[in-house]
């Protein structure tokens, strides 16, 4: 069960991929959308994040992928206090995080191949070094025949798979997915979940934010539940 001790020093958190310590967050002068959030994501763990709409899941994910700063409290990314990170250090942290958004955030002017290869291209890798791996991954998520297609010509489920392929292509240390199975059929959802568990088995820490109870019940892993900006933790046994 993930837990946090507020007096833990950053150097001691190195086995935590992400650590939140008393984190609160508000937008502008509005009310706090996250309150006193404290948790660890131990290296190599697999966890679900659930909660109703408006509970603060997206805000919490924004803090994890460094799109927002907390209003209070401390967050450690891979043992680094994020409040002390210089702007030029953010890309290195982000490259260690694979992020899947509910709204995909694919680039419509690029093909499926280019979208999936984007993290590798941005990291300065040569195209000929990654072309095979990217093509294989695209085949694996079932889009081998749509490698040249542009995302806006794909269905929601197909775009979701492009986003997932892009998130995992760089073999990130942490994979964060926001409703990754929200737009796919049950068979594809199971296949994607298998991809996530396989990545986790290979050492990637996985955090999946979802409403999908079936998905949550399919694995015996810790669950973080957000309600009204506050976090509860627990564990649900796999149903089968």
């Amino acid at each position: 069960m993930p837990s946090a001790s507020p007096d833990t020093r950053p150097d001691d958190t190195f086995e935590s991929v992400i650590r939140f310590d008393g984190v609160g967050m508000r937008y502008g002068r509005g009310p706090e959308v996250l309150q006193d959030i404290t948790f660890d994501l131990p290296r190599g763990s697999f966890q679900f994040l659930t909660g109703p709409s408006g509970a603060g899941k997206t805000s919490l994910l924004k803090l994890i992928y460094l799109a927002q700063r907390p209003s209070r409290g401390l967050i450690w990314h891979f043992g680094r206090d994020s409040s002390k990170l210089h702007r030029r250090e953010l890309p290195d942290i982000r490259r260690r995080i694979g992020m899947v958004f509910q709204d995909f955030r694919t680039l419509d002017h690029l093909s499926v191949f280019e979208n999936v290869a984007l993290p590798l291209r941005v990291a300065g890798r040569k195209r000929k070094e990654y072309a095979d791996d990217v093509a294989e991954l695209i085949h694996w998520v079932g889009l081998g025949d749509k490698m040249d297609a542009q995302p806006q010509t794909l269905s929601g489920g197909e775009q979701q798979r492009v986003a997932i392929a892009r998130a995992v292509v760089g073999q990130p240390e942490l994979l964060v997915a926001d409703e990754p199975t929200g737009n796919v059929d049950p068979a594809m959802a199971r296949r994607l979940l298998r991809l996530f568990t396989e990545l986790n088995r290979l050492g990637t820490t996985v955090l999946i934010a979802t409403h999908d109870i079936t998905l949550v019940r399919s694995l015996d892993v810790p669950i973080m539940s957000l309600a009204d900006g506050r976090l509860n933790t627990g564990r649900r046994k796999a149903s089968a």
């Binding site: 191949f113 280019e114 291209r121 195209r127 095979d132 085949h139 081998g144 490698m147 040249d148």
Partner: peptide, 12 residues
């Protein structure tokens, strides 16, 4: 290269 992999990178 896989036959379906595009040969050139598109402008970002």
């Amino acid at each position: 290269l896989p036959p379906t992999a595009p040969e050139k990178s598109a402008p970002l």
